Simulated scan of single mutants.
Amino acid sequence: MNYDKAHELARAIRESEEYRNYFATHQNVNQDAEAKRMFDDFRKRQFELQMKQMSGQAPTQDEMEQFQRLFETISLNPEIRKLLEAERILSQVMEDINRIIAEPLEVLFTDQI
C-alpha cells in the first residue's frame, strides 16, 4: 500500500481552518500563565476520571459535580472557552474522517453478523 494519500490527508488536516484555529487558540491559552494552569488542571482531572472509568470504576456523584464546577469555572475564561469550542469542532472533523476511512472495513463486520 502506498501511504502518499495518508500523508496528503495529514497535510490537509494541518492546513485546515479547524486545525489552525485550534492551534492558535491553544497557543493563546499557553501564553497566559493562569489560563494555562487552569486548563492543565482541568485536563488532569478529566484524564483521571477517564482512567477511572476505563478501569471499570464509576466516578462518584461528588467527583462528577466537582468536575462540572471546574468546567463551568474554566469556561468563564474567554480564551479557554474558545479553545474548548475549537477542540470540539476539530474533534468532529476527526470523527468524520475516521468514519470515512473505516467505511471499507464495514463489510467485514456486517458480513459476519
Rank of each mutant, 00 (worst) to 15 (best):
M1R: 09
M1S: 10
D4W: 09
D4I: 02
A6N: 13
A6K: 09
E8D: 08
L9C: 03
R11Y: 05
R11E: 14
A12W: 03
A12D: 05
I13R: 12
E15I: 08
E15N: 13
S16V: 03
S16I: 01
E17N: 12
E17M: 09
E18A: 11
E18D: 07
R20W: 00
T25I: 02
T25L: 05
T25N: 04
T25Y: 04
H26F: 03
Q27I: 03
Q27G: 04
Q27Y: 00
N28K: 11
V29L: 01
N30K: 02
D32A: 09
E34K: 14
E34T: 11
K36R: 07
R37V: 03
F39E: 01
D40Y: 00
D40P: 01
D40G: 04
D41V: 02
D41P: 01
D41Q: 04
F42S: 09
F42T: 13
K44A: 15
R45T: 08
R45G: 04
F47H: 11
L49E: 00
Q50E: 15
Q50S: 13
M51P: 09
K52T: 10
G56Q: 07
G56W: 00
Q57F: 07
A58G: 14
P59L: 07
D62G: 00
D62H: 08
E65L: 15
R69W: 01
R69E: 14
L70Y: 03
F71I: 02
E72F: 03
E72S: 14
T73Q: 07
T73D: 12
I74N: 04
S75W: 04
L76H: 14
L76Y: 06
P78D: 08
P78A: 06
R81P: 06
K82Q: 06
K82H: 12
L84I: 11
E85Q: 14
R88E: 04
I89K: 12
L90P: 02
Q92S: 13
V93H: 06
D96I: 04
I97L: 12
R99C: 06
I100Y: 09
I100V: 13
A102C: 02
P104A: 01
L105T: 15
L105F: 14
L105H: 11
L105D: 05
E106H: 09
L108G: 04
L108Y: 13
T110M: 13
Q112G: 01
Q112N: 05
Q112D: 08
I113V: 14
I113R: 08
